[in-house]
Structures are given as structure tokens and as C-alpha cells.
Amino acid sequence: METVLTLTLPAELSHLPAFIAAVTEAAESSHVPQKTLFEIELALEEALVNVMNYAYAGAKGDIQVVCRAEGGTAFVVEITDSGKDFDMTSLPEPDITAGVEERKIGGLGIYFIKKLADRVTYRREDGKNILAIMFM
């Protein structure tokens, strides 16, 4: 697969639009279909916001986003942070049938990533969390 984007920015919410714009542009240039562009944008926001809110527990840190593409058929977004150990793929699914009063506020973002992506993998390497979200 060919690397089409490498972008490193501070793990702060104010940088979310820059990450989304860069990844969307990379996906468009890689001829990713319109419907998949939306899925990538949503999965990316959910994954990045999680890291921005929790990984560094108030301290400063960076996020690196790397995108790889293969001939318009596969697009991978890899998100790396050096924050605390967190494997989102191991979390249980939220109860999406609970009514308004019982419905918990939270857990949906990770569920969206798992539902929208074709494959999600996590690895911890050299003190880093590496989440790879693949769209086919």
C-alpha cells in the first residue's frame, strides 16, 4: 500500500478540523467513494476525540495520522498516540436498545468506528497506541 498522508499535530480538539480536512483530501485523491468518505470522517472524529479527551490525561502530547491507499479499493487510517494504554477494540458494545431515560451518554463513538470500518486493529508498540481503521 502507498502512504498518501502523514500528519502530526497536538492532541487538542482545536486541531480536529485540520486532521479531518487532510484525511478527507487524501481519501478523495485516492478515489474513495462518497459514502466511504463520510464513514472515514465519522470514524476519524470518534477515534481522534477519544485520544484528545483521554490519552494524555490533561498533559500535552501529539497524534500522528498516517493514511495508506491501494488503488481505490482499500484505505487505511492509522492513528498513533503516546498516551496511556488503551485498546478500544476490547470494549463491550453499548446497549443501543435502552430507552431515553436509561440510555447512557457515552460509548457510542467506539461503536461507530467498529460498525463503519471493515476492520479495526490495535497494537501497543514502544509505549504507543496504534489504531488502524481499514475501509475496503
Partner: peptide, 19 residues
């Protein structure tokens, strides 16, 4: 044109207050 889980949380919080 776009809503994420953050948007849904905002709508759910409002619905809870209303209920």
C-alpha cells in the same frame, strides 16, 4: 449534513431534560 456521537450526546442530553 453531519452528526457524530458528540452530536447525539447533545441531543440525548436535551431529550433527558425534556422527559
Amino acid at each position: 449534513t453531519y452528526v457524530s456521537s458528540a452530536g447525539l450526546r447533545g441531543l440525548l442530553a436535551t431529550a433527558k431534560k425534556l422527559k
